[in-house]
C-alpha cells in the first residue's frame, strides 16, 4: 500500500485544545509503527484510507495573536487544516472565522478544512451551538465535528473526514510525495535510441 504524506495544519485560538486533540488522536490506540516525535507540536499518525495509507503530518501553530503572522509558514503546502474553537467561548469561534478567511485568501488551493468544536463535554456552558457551526461549515464546504479531547469523542472522526475528502491519487502518480518520481521519462527515450 502506498503511503501518502499529508500535511495537516492546526489553527485556532490559544487554549481551545488544539494540541490536546492531536495528542488524543495520535496516542490513543497507540501503534508502535508510528515513529515518535520529539514533542507534541509536531506529530504524525498513519491511518488506512481505501487502498492508501494516509500519513498525517500534523503541524500545530501557536494561537496567540502575536504569532499570527507566522501562520503562513505553517499552513503553506498543507493538504488540510483543522480549525479548532472552544464551544464554550464565542470569541474562539470568531477567531475561527478569521482563520477560514485567511486560508481562503492565502492558503493552498483545494485545502480541506475541518472545523472542530472542542470541549463538547462542557455542553452545559456552551456558547456556540452546533447548528451555528454546522451551517457555517456547510457554507464554506468544511467538515464540522464537535469533539472532546478530554473524553476522546469524535477525535478520529475529524481525521477520517479529512481522509475521505482528500482526492485519491492517480494510479500513475502513486507513491510517496515527490520522492518516487525521478528521471523515469528520459530512460525510456534513451533505451529507444539504442
Amino acid at each position: 500500500m502506498a503511503i501518502r504524506e499529508l500535511k495537516v495544519c492546526l489553527l485556532g485560538d490559544t487554549g481551545v485544545g488544539k494540541s490536546s486533540i492531536v495528542c488524543r488522536f495520535v496516542q490513543d490506540h497507540f501503534d508502535h509503527n508510528i515513529s515518535p516525535t520529539i514533542g507534541a507540536s509536531f506529530m504524525t499518525k498513519t491511518v488506512p484510507c481505501g487502498n492508501e495509507l494516509h500519513k498525517f503530518l500534523i503541524w500545530d501553530t501557536a494561537g496567540q495573536e502575536r504569532f499570527h503572522s507566522l501562520a503562513p509558514m505553517y499552513y503553506r503546502g498543507s493538504a488540510a487544516a483543522v480549525i479548532v474553537y472552544d464551544i464554550t467561548k464565542q470569541d474562539s469561534f470568531v477567531t475561527l472565522k478569521k482563520w477560514v478567511k485567511e486560508l481562503k485568501e492565502h492558503g493552498p488551493d483545494n485545502i480541506v478544512m475541518a472545523i472542530a468544536g472542542n470541549k463538547c463535554d462542557l455542553a452545559d456552558i456552551r456558547e456556540v451551538t452546533f447548528k451555528e457551526a454546522k451551517e457555517y461549515a456547510d457554507s464554506i464546504g468544511a467538515i464540522a465535528v464537535e469533539t472532546s479531547a478530554k473524553n476522546s469523542i469524535n477525535i478520529e472522526e475529524v481525521f477520517q473526514g479529512i481522509s475521505r475528502k482528500i482526492p485519491p491519487l492517480d494510479p500513475y502518480e502513486n507513491g510517496e510525495i515527490g520522492a518516487m518520481k525521478l528521471g523515469r521519462p528520459s530512460l525510456q527515450s534513451t533505451n529507444r535510441c539504442c
Binding site: L10, T14, G15, K18, S19, S20, V22, C23, G39, A40, S41, D60, T61, A62, G63, Q64, F67, L70
Partner: peptide
C-alpha cells in the same frame, strides 16, 4: 505534553 502555544 505541550503544543505550539507553549513551545514557541
Amino acid at each position: 505534553m505541550y503544543g505550539a502555544d507553549d513551545f514557541l
